[in-house]
């Protein structure tokens, strides 16, 4: 028998879970305020704010989420609905480098599966996982928009095109300290 899950009592009128002024850096706050000024409402900067904080901290922790929600004047639940909606917002820790391999049709026609298998074997992880040394996270991605140079992947936001096993190996070796 599993134990019942304890119910947390939350007072909705209490102070915010995380006060953004204490949690976010000045750099983050300035950048987010800049984005807020571009829209008619503060919550409209949600995606920008998530990207800014993720750019500094690699991923969006629960506390980051609460802080951004506090800063934009929206509920954390609503912001969670946005954060989890997008492929490029990470709600779990990721490695130093993130590989997004395209798995859509033009790459399928160019046998991306062999690249996928090679990556999984070489890194010894499945898609959605991070190598044990915390270096590399492997994720799938929908069409990267370079179908004329398939198969393709995105490494830390940079496009790498016309992949084959040799070029993938070279790429992984370039990410120093990768265990083979």
């Amino acid at each position: 028998m599993s134990k019942p899950i304890p119910i947390k009592h939350i007072d909705p009128l209490a102070e915010p879970r995380v006060d953004y002024r204490h949690y976010l850096s000045n750099k983050e706050i300035t950048a987010i305020e800049h984005e807020c000024a571009l829209y008619e409402s503060r919550p409209a900067a949600a995606i920008d704010a998530l990207q800014i904080v993720q750019g500094e901290r690699r991923w969006i922790s629960d506390d980051s989420l609460y802080a951004i929600a506090d800063m934009l004047g929206m509920s954390a639940t609503e912001l969670e609905g946005i954060a989890t909606f997008y492929n490029l917002i990470y709600r779990q820790p990721v490695g130093e480098h993130v590989i997004h391999l395209c798995d859509s049709i033009s790459c399928w026609l160019h046998d991306f599966q062999s690249i996928a298998d090679h990556l999984r074997k070489t890194l010894n992880i499945e898609f959605g996982q991070t190598t044990s040394d915390g270096k590399i996270t492997l994720l799938p991605n929908v069409c990267l928009g370079c179908c004329d140079k398939a198969p393709a992947l995105m490494l830390d936001g940079e496009l790498v095109e016309s992949l084959d096993i040799a070029s993938v190996d070279k790429l992984l070796q370039g990410l120093s300290g990768v265990q083979k």
Partner: peptide, 24 residues
């Protein structure tokens, strides 16, 4: 405005929701 990767945002009204900071 740079989005964060979701096909449905290409739908006109979903795009408007996304731009308002709502679920798309």
């Amino acid at each position: 405005h740079t989005s964060a990767g979701r096909y449905i945002c290409g739908e006109e009204t979903a795009l408007i929701n996304a731009l308002e900071g709502k679920r798309a």
